[in-house]
Each structure stands twice: as structure tokens, then as C-alpha cells.
Nucleic acid binder design. Structure first.
Lengths: 136, 136
DNA sequence: TAGAGACTTCGAGTGCACTCCAGCCAAGAC
DNA sequence: GTCTTGGCTGGAGTGCACTCGAAGTCTCTA
């Protein structure tokens, strides 16, 4: 977790699971788990059966990472992934899904900004109290 | 959760747990649990052993609620609560704790705003795609 | 020819933040 | 006086999102 996320290795569009883990910050367990639950579209395999992630796969993971950071439940992300797999006729639904999520993110930001004001106020009042007690 | 949070009932400074649940949006389970884990200072009891929350208790719960909304882990809130109980000589530590949390909230906001931009972009691109396909 | 790292299934464990249950008690309404 | 509502306790259970382990096989790089 304290791992910095490494840059995408200059690529032949065929990263191993270990490389992807290193550059996304996810564990190999999580990557395989994402695939199992349908959050990750089917990943190419080498002729020996090993996963080979493409740049598109990395883009998708980056997007999913953003959604996750903004608190979208995994189940919703899976729903979105399914829609993507179903093709272009789901554009409207997908757009709606993202729109709804955008509203949530917006109100979350507003909420955080509210609290920020409260924190500022509290921190100031501690500063005042300490100044008074030092002077005493 | 879809419950609106009710206003604080005009009070004799002695609310029952049910009233507090109604006006904070927390469940009675959660309120008792907060007390068990030391997140809630000791609450007064009636002569029959029932909890009687004061306005100060409600203020504290409101503050804790804000911290929770901003993602502070319960363990950290408990640490803060302990410091409060220890008295004024912990002002500096408390201030530091809030300061650190403020930084986290700030970077969280930045993160969310980043994603907001991405969402806007995605939503727009769906709108474009749909406009094109409708015209075709 | 090692050793690292990939693969599989699949079930169990973790950490957090609740959430609920069983079994009991007390007060007010009818 | 019993019924309902709401309170009490300690401990167990839930849901999410991972996270890990076992146990065995295969493959790539030095």
C-alpha cells in the first residue's frame, strides 16, 4: 500500500499479471478476483495460458480504480462492465449510470467541504485556547 | 438511511436513546456500540438505568458524524475521544490530529474533483456517440 | 538446472463498521 | 392486569472488498 504505483512499462501490449500488479498497485489476487467476478473483460492468454494484459486492459483498470476511489460499489462497477460488453446499444444506460454517480461524487465533495470548514474552525479554537493558556 | 434526520426535539437535556436515534440517523444499536467502544463519553442514566442523552452528547455525536462522513476510521475517532476525556493538556495533540485529518480531507476532495472531470468527459463522449448514431 | 513467477480451484481468513439476537426488565395505555 | 413499547446486556452475525493459503503444475530467464 505504501508502494508507489509504477509507470506502465514500455510495452508490447502484453503485460504479465505481475507487471500489472506493480503498475496498478493491485495484488495479483485482486486482479484474478476482478476477472472472476466479471469486473474485468476477458484478458488475452499466451499460448501457455498465462494472462497477457493489453494497454486497453490497463486503461480499463485505471478507470475502474477511479470509480473505486470515488466509492462506487463493486457490484455497480460490474453492472457497468456488463453493459460495456453488451455493446453500443447500451450507451444510454451507461451514460445514465455515470451521470448518477457524478451526482453522488458532487454531493460527496460538498459534504467534505462543509466538514473542512468545521475542521478549520475547531483547529483555530484549539490554537486560541493554547495561546491563552501560554500567556497565563 | 432514506430517513430524514429529524430536528433535535425541544429538550430537557435528557433524550432517550430512541429520540437520539431518530434525530441523528444512527440506530440504537450503533449508539450503544459507540459507547461500548469508548467513542461516546459516559452517558447519564435515569434512575431506572436508561440512557439520558444531554445536548452536549448530541453535539458530540454531530461532530463524530462529520468525522465519520469524511472517512476518519473509528479507531482514530476513539483516540480523539480519549484525548478529550483526558482534559486540556491534550489540546496540542488533538489539534495535530485534526490538522492531519484536514489534510486527508483536502486530498480526498482533490481526488474526487479529478474523477469528476473524468466523468464529465466520459458522459460527454457518450452524448456525442449517441448524437452521431441518431443522425445516421 | 535452479529459482522465480506464472497457472488452476476454492475455500478460508481479515478488517471494518456496524447490525442483530436472545432473554430480560420497566413504564404507560387500555 | 396484561399488553405494547421501548429500554437493557453480551455476544454472535453480516456484508463488503479484498487477501491469503494450499497444493500441485508449468514455463521462462540466468
Amino acid at each position: 500500500m505504501s508502494e508507489g504505483v509504477h509507470p506502465r512499462p514500455a510495452g508490447q501490449d502484453a503485460y504479465t499479471i505481475g507487471e500489472v500488479a506493480a503498475c496498478t498497485g493491485l495484488t495479483v489476487h485482486t486482479l484474478r478476483w476482478y476477472e472472476r467476478i466479471g469486473l474485468m473483460p476477458h484478458v488475452d492468454r499466451s499460448n501457455t495460458g498465462q494472462r497477457r494484459y493489453s494497454n486497453r486492459d490497463l486503461d480499463w483498470l485505471a478507470f475502474v480504480g477511479k470509480l473505486r476511489l470515488t466509492g462506487m460499489p463493486v457490484a455497480d462497477m460490474v453492472r457497468y462492465a456488463v453493459l460495456v460488453r453488451e455493446g453500443e446499444h447500451t450507451f444510454a444506460v451507461r451514460q445514465e449510470l455515470l451521470r448518477a454517480h457524478r451526482e453522488e461524487v458532487r454531493s460527496r465533495i460538498a459534504e467534505l467541504q462543509d466538514t473542512l470548514a468545521l475542521l478549520d474552525h475547531k483547529i483555530d479554537s484549539y490554537a486560541d485556547a493554547r495561546r491563552v493558556s501560554e500567556r497565563a
